[in-house]
Design a protein around this nucleic acid. Structure first.
Lengths: 267, 267
DNA sequence: TCTTGTCGTGTTATCATACAACCCTGATTT
DNA sequence: AAATCAGGGTTGTATGATAACACGACAAGA
């Protein structure tokens, strides 16, 4: 077993580098589930760091469920299904196809959340949504306050599903999507957009208030399709469309991001 | 700031206990975003462990995005949105309502995954699904081999969506659900169930093969409703039912499915 | 032959200490 | 007044030692 473990170059937190290096070994299959890792001492000398650093790295991997260790035996690669946490690689999201996939997943969750919200919303939920909309109306388009109100609106919708996991997942996915959009920095602003976006939200709220399940789904789908355009995703590829139950087995038109998600990662 | 930090009782991995203790402080709001944590030395004496253990705990929390630290300054609680991982508390899942919520979320993802799979599946996908079904057919109901084939079938469906995040999320959620079911240990086995469950899977595959989006959704919904019953969830509460989109103007009534699911929508 | 108990070795878990790198503050110097 | 520097406090890393545990080898006894 010749693991390809490079000496680690200085950076932020040696343990982070060691952890991701080991993580890569696992992801790329050089370390398979059940395999025993080299001893801490061996890893320490291999990476050229202290055993302490190795232990911090291992503690991290263990908390992620990627490996497990037992005193006196050693550390072993865990089964993939044992992953106890869900992570989304930031760098991977810079790739257009990854971003589109995550956007699609978000769309699915948002649309179904809207449906559930239309069924289960309470008066308090509706008030909260209305307040969030007022916040958007009051703030200039694209401003920090506007964005906060936007997030707040979607959060209240998720909360109205009365399913905490829905809120948790949606918040997680949305935040990753938002980060990626900000990193790309290509959202276009115009005066029209404020009105359009606001209108989309209002229709969602109206449908949810009316308890109109289909309407809420459709309104949310519209909103996400609009958001996709605004972010530079072509409509045909947007999430909202792909989950709408209509045409059968249409060939997937390959997408093109406008200058969208080009990397500007470190450097 | 009087943090309620109990001395840690011996158990599996001190760093784990320290980490979850700090985590709890954050979750319960005694440590708010921006707050500075006590120094490592202080935490070490507070918990009655060595500074090394505290560092492993902090390394873990940092990797989860819950805190950030800077050399020479200290460690600080991060904003909630910065959480880079999504976790599901195992204990919380023992509560019935939490379990039902997670099951509902899983249902949403599975149903929409089936829809996407019906659109995008390749020949290879269909072959893989068929193989998984054969595996189920060959194995005794409830056996390890059977369960593995079951998981494999759902995995292939997720893969056929051509959306890696869908697979990732679904695998994560399903695994948590499965764990919880096993822990409860209340799944009932009978000879009929093998046939029924197999039939449900076959209908899903048939719809996906035919590229029938609605049919795939409906079949998957049926399957999940059945699974919910088998696991002891009341039908009315099952996930699959609550996301049913009430046939959006579809001329094609393709369901020759049992209508068990369709009674009792929210009224 | 089979079982059992002991021991030695290797590994992880934890502790303790020391030093380096860095931040912050405040006094000193220019 | 501004720049510089010294000092203490904090995290980051290194190193060595000890305890707890797993595992195989090996001998003693049945």
């Amino acid at each position: 077993m010749t693991l390809k473990l490079d000496k680690v170059n200085r950076g932020p937190h040696l343990s982070t580098l060691v952890a991701s290096s080991i993580s890569r070994e696992i992801a790329q299959g050089r370390l398979k589930p059940g395999d025993q890792l080299p001893t801490e001492q061996a890893l320490a000398t291999t990476f050229g760091v202290s055993r302490n650093v190795v232990r911090e790295a291992i503690a991290r991997l263990r908390s992620e469920g990627r490996i497990w260790s037992q005193q006196g035996r050693g550390a072993f690669v865990a089964d993939a299904t044992n992953a106890t946490v869900l992570t989304i690689d930031y760098d991977a999201l810079q790739r257009a196809d990854s971003f589109r996939n995550l956007f699609e997943l978000r769309g699915i969750l948002e649309v179904q959340a809207a449906a559930l919200a239309a069924k289960r919303r309470t008066k308090a939920d509706l008030t909260a949504m209305t307040n969030a909309l007022s916040g958007m109306r009051a703030a200039p388009y694209g401003s920090v306050a506007w964005l906060r109100s936007d997030l707040e609106f979607h959060r209240t919708v998720a909360e109205a599903t009365r399913n905490s996991y829905m809120g948790q997942f949606l918040a997680f996915v949305s935040e990753r999507v938002r980060e990626s959009i900000l990193a790309a920095g290509n959202q276009q602003k115009s005066d029209d957009m404020a009105r359009i976006t606001l209108g989309e939200h209002e229709r969602i709220l109206a449908a949810i208030r009316a308890g109109d399940v289909e309407g809420a789904q459709a309104a949310m789908r519209d909103h996400l399709a609009g958001a996709a355009l605004r972010v530079g995703l072509h409509e045909g590829e947007a999430a909202a469309e792909s989950v709408s139950p209509q045409e059968v087995a249409s060939p997937v038109r390959h997408s093109r991001l406008r200058k969208a998600v080009r990397n500007r990662t470190a450097g």
